[in-house]
Design a protein around this nucleic acid. Structure first.
Lengths: 228, 228
DNA sequence: TCTCGACATTGATATTAATCAACTATTTTA
DNA sequence: TAAAATAGTTGATTAATATCAATGTCGAGA
């Protein structure tokens, strides 16, 4: 982790959103964003830690995960540039309910929650957006709950692959996560993750070359993902 | 389901909260709460259905659950008088992410969301509360996610019993749910639910007499619940 | 009171997925 | 570059839980 000086961040969504409103309200000078750089594997925020800022990923991938019992992790999301951390908890929780760790070197932009809170205290539109995002969080986690509990490993891996395809916005992508982490995304063991991937390959549903994955038969993946 | 006329609801928390603010803002007359009665087993709201009101349980128990694949259910919460339905989704989601069904005959108070929204549009305090409640929802479901995925059935049943003890606010309570539903609360089969209950009884951790359950050794239950 | 149906219980079996063990391939680092 | 660490793979075994089958119990209603 390193604070970066003299960063010019043209396309920082957090700054844009907040910057515009703060200027509108003449509170522009309060923002003082910090640009923070994390090396691969570094922790960006830790489950149980105090939330005191809103962070947006500018560059690099990160994983949002929860540490369960026996230090077994479940990955909730893969974060890509423009994704927020912490904002979902503004006014909500004092502590992070999850951890975030860098999968690659990550550049972030962080703004203190006090500043955001003061600016948005009377901004109904922003609060609505925040609530909306909360609602979707609840909905996503409920979906995950059902998947993990009721789908078999083939369905869970298929779902994860389809999810990653959406995240990377292509049917052909290079994984930023290990097989173990792909397992944690589906909440199954590393070994079974590999086995299912191999099966899918042999069934000509996907192509694998190391971390390069190509979804060949999306139709089949969707069908497998929906079966329980 | 039956709309009840001429109900006097002295201790309706929804009405109180909203009533006070609406009076403050001179919008009292917009509320028009409906008092609705549901017979045991009736659906109070259905997963995927449009959310157009906020409902508070005045009397009776209900279950909040999600229907997964193969119409297998997972119960998220048991609702008791004073618990809200739908409010958590105000501004958030257009559709219910869960269903609620009456476990007993239930009396409810329902207020149209449009009315609440207009009253609270500029009420920062209420929005904060709403966000706070959202944060806790996320947090609770994440906990459930970890439990279901990483705890064994003994731990999950122990956790459910401790949860029910909190809901019913006593170490000795009469279940409002069947064994099957107790299983759905722990996301395990009915048969294994019975087996674990019987084991707990033989280990003198609980006493069972039909639907009457007494938690004898809470210490042990907590320990079992925390083991993975 | 009898019967039906929902609920509860128990044992046997099958299935699923985790774990263990061994090994190969690929990166990192000294 | 060699050695060590990390990542990926495969097979065998074990453990956990679901499912199936049978039976018991209780209350509501004819």
């Amino acid at each position: 982790m390193r604070i970066e000086k003299n960063v010019k961040c043209e396309d920082c969504p957090l700054k844009c959103d907040i910057y515009l409103t703060s200027r509108e309200m003449g509170m522009e000078s309060m923002l003082n964003p910090a640009y923070v750089y994390y090396k691969k594997f570094e922790t960006i925020c830790r489950q149980g830690g105090k939330i005191d800022n809103s962070t947006v990923i500018l560059k690099g991938n990160a994983k949002m995960f929860v540490s369960g019992h026996c230090s077994r992790n479940i990955i909730l999301n893969i974060l890509i540039p423009s994704n927020y951390i912490g904002l979902v908890s503004l006014y909500g929780l004092p502590d992070y309910p999850y951890s975030v760790a860098a999968l690659e070197d990550c550049h972030t932009c962080q703004i203190n929650n006090d500043a955001i809170e003061q600016i948005y205290q009377k901004n109904e539109h922003f609060m609505k957006l925040l609530n909306h995002s909360f609602g979707h969080s609840v909905s996503n986690i409920i979906d995950k709950l059902i998947s993990l509990n009721q789908k078999h490993i083939r369905g869970r891996v298929a779902e994860s692959l389809l999810y990653l395809s959406k995240v990377y916005d292509s049917e052909c992508f290079k994984l930023t996560i290990t097989r173990r982490e792909l397992g944690e995304l589906s909440a199954i063991s590393e070994e079974n993750t590999v086995r299912v991937l191999t099966d899918f390959k042999n069934e000509n549903i996907i192509n694998i070359d190391g971390r390069e994955i190509e979804l060949v038969d999306i139709e089949a993946l969707s069908r497998i993902s929906l079966n329980c």
